[in-house]
Each structure stands twice: as C-alpha cells, then as structure tokens.
Amino acid sequence: MRRYFGRKLLVYALTFVVAVTVNWMIPRFMPGDPVAGMLARAGVSQPAAVEAMRVYYTNLFGLDRPLWQQYASFWGTLLRGDFGISIWLFPTPVSTVILRAVPYTLGLMVPAVLLSWVAGNRLGAFAARRRLLDNTVLPLGYVLTATPYMWLAVILAWGLGVVAGWFPVAGGYSFSLQPSFTAGFLLDLLHHWVLPFLSLFLVALGGWAIGMRNMIIYELESDYASYLAALGAPARLIRRYAFRNAVLPQITGLALQLGVLVAGALVTEIVFSYPGLGSLILKAIQNQDFFLLQGTFMFIVIGVLVANFVIDLVYVVVDPRTRAGMAGARG
C-alpha cells in the first residue's frame, strides 16, 4: 500500500511541476511578444503611457533577467500563494478573485458529478441484460454522452427557462438580493442552481450508464458468475457480486473523466452566467487578463490533483486487494 501511494504521489508531484512549467513557458515561448501584444490590445496611444506600461509588464514578468532566474522566481511567488494582480478587477489579487468564484463551481460540480455517477451506475446495472430497458437506455446514453455540455445547457435554458419560465437563466442569485444566510436568499440560490446542475448531471449520466452496462455484461459472463449460477444462486445475488466488481473500473473512470467534467462545468457556467470559474475564465479572456487566466489554470490543476488523490483513497477502501499489496491497483 505504501508503494501504491508513493507512486501516486510521485505522479501528482510531477504533474504539478509540469503544469507550473507549462504555465511559465507559454507566455515566454509562444510566437510573438506578450508585452507588445498586451500593449497593443490595451489601445493606449500616448507614447509616454505605452513606455510606462512596457516597463511595468517587463518588470512584472521579469523578462529582463536570465531564464533560470525567471523560472525560480516564478516558483517563489507561486509558493507564497501570490498569483499576481487581476487586470480586469484591478487591483484585486488574482487569488481573491478566484477564491470568491470557487464555491459556486464546487457547489455545482460536486453534486452533479457524484449524483450522476451513482445514478448512472444504478441505471446501467439495471439495464444490462434486460432487453427492453437496454434498447432504450443504451441509445439514450450514447446521445447524452455525445452532447456538448453547453448545447444541452442552452436547450434547457431555452426550454425550461425562457419558454416555460420555470427557472431563471442567468446568474447565481437574483440581482435584487444581497448574499446572506436567510431562507429567502438560499431558496433563490437553489432556484438558480437547478438548471446548470441538471444539464451537467444529464450529460455525465449517459457515460456512466453505458460504462456500467458494459462492465456488468462482462462480469455476468465471467467464471464466478457461471459457477454461482450453477450452484443455484439467485440471479439477484449474482448481480450484486457483479456490481461490486464492476464498480471498480467505474471509480477509475471517474478519475479519468475529471478533466472532461471540469471542462463541462466551465462551459455550462458560461451559458448560465453562473458566477464560478467558467464565467471568470470568460471575463479573463474578454479583458485579456492573463494573470487571472493562468491563476485559474493553476487552481483547476490543483483541484483535479486533490480530487484524484481522494479517489485513490476511496479506491483503497473499496478494493481490498490494494491494501494487501496485491495486483489490482489502477495503472
């Protein structure tokens, strides 16, 4: 088990280093001069102002020093939790802007991911080897999993929001309210949360259902299932054993899908102008706020790494073979 965690942590540490390095490299090694680009987009015409901005940005990036010093100081500021100053919300620090948005993204993603995973697994396990259900769940699952997240969000916003008028289609809460811990505000928050949650939930559901269905069919054809059947065990018992075995690859699948799920949450937030990281990224891009964009990137990477580690912990609890130091741990 120590070897299992040691290896995992090594991968995550390396991933973090790679992500930071990529984050450092992109502005410096992309074609074109980032400072010149920023100045051009700022649209300042007075030569004095342009010169002042050039000096400011060059100092900020530390572009006048040797590369290894730039790299070292990049790590230094990062480890101090300093992600720079947001240009869009000048002079708020990037970390403050991001921390304000993170609760909304987490509040949307965590329930959507967990519930779709649980419901998808149930649905898939239930549909496997039942002809009628299989013929409806499977095609529907493929359509859902092929749907772009933002398109389902747009369709839901249009159908249930604009046409039916049941749910608001923009924002995290009504503009007339101030965030507070009153029943009225929390209900309003929930009301705005339903549609983005639903669209995330539905797209993810399809993939889990298909995965589970295929795994259950595979498990039901294995030797232990046939043996149990030959012993006269009830079908329900066999299915329960099959489910327990089939859940393991689904946990691995959850870790592998995290990147896609984050991407889905980001575009869904943009559709609903939900005040999470997705809307932040949109604002950062529209305002050419590269510090904010890169800060958000680092936050997403850290979040995905933490989630991966949590999934590893869960895997050890669920699969006894990893505890005994035997095979069975995921890659």
Binding site: V11, M30, P34, G259, A263, I281, F297, V304
Partner: peptide, 25 residues
C-alpha cells in the same frame, strides 16, 4: 513513457488549451 503518459493524463486538457489559445493572437 508510462510516467509521462500518467502525468499528462491527469492535467485537465481544456485548461491547458485555454491558456495556450489565449496567448495565440
């Protein structure tokens, strides 16, 4: 190569692409 694959597997693809594309004029 397996280590490299695992490392890149964990990094969220869209997040990297966002930063890269934002810097491409």
């Amino acid at each position: 190569l397996t280590m490299l694959t695992n490392v890149i597997l964990v990094i969220p693809t869209l997040a990297v692409l966002l930063v890269v594309n934002a810097y491409l004029g």
